[in-house]
Design a protein around this nucleic acid. Sequence first.
DNA 1: GCAATGACGCTCT
DNA 2: CAGAGCGCCATTG
Length: 114
Amino acid sequence: MKERETRRGRIYAVIRRIPRGRVATYGQVALFAGLPGQARLVGYALAALDVDSDVPWHRVVNARGAISLPPQGHSARMQRARLEAEGVVFESDRVVLARHRWRPRGSSRGISGR
DNA sequence: GCAATGACGCTCT
DNA sequence: CAGAGCGCCATTG
C-alpha cells in the first residue's frame, strides 16, 4: 500500500490547501482533485490516512455540513472540537457552510454571496 | 476474480 | 426537514 497513491496524494494535496477556519465538502475536494462526482474516493482516502499525516482531514465534511463519522466516535468529537477551535460555527451538529464553505479562486460559479 | 462494504452526493417520496 | 433508493469507484475478504 504505497504505490498508485496518485489519486490519494492528489486528494491530500487539495485538503492541505484548505485555509484554517474554512471547511470543504467531500464533493468539493473530489472536484478540485480532478475526480468530479467521486466524493466516495475522498472519504476512502481519508479513512486510510495515517495518524502522522499532516493533512487537516478535520476540515472536510459532507455536503450537509455535518461530520460523517459516528457522533459517539472519538474522531468525530475531535474534528468538531478542532473546527470550533478555528472559529467554525456549528448549528445543530452542522457547520454553517454558507459561512465557512471554502471558496478557492475561480469557484465563484455565480454565487451572490450566499 | 467475484461479492460485499464504505469518512459521499443527488433525487424522489 | 427526514428517510429511502440509486450511482461511482477503490479496497478487502
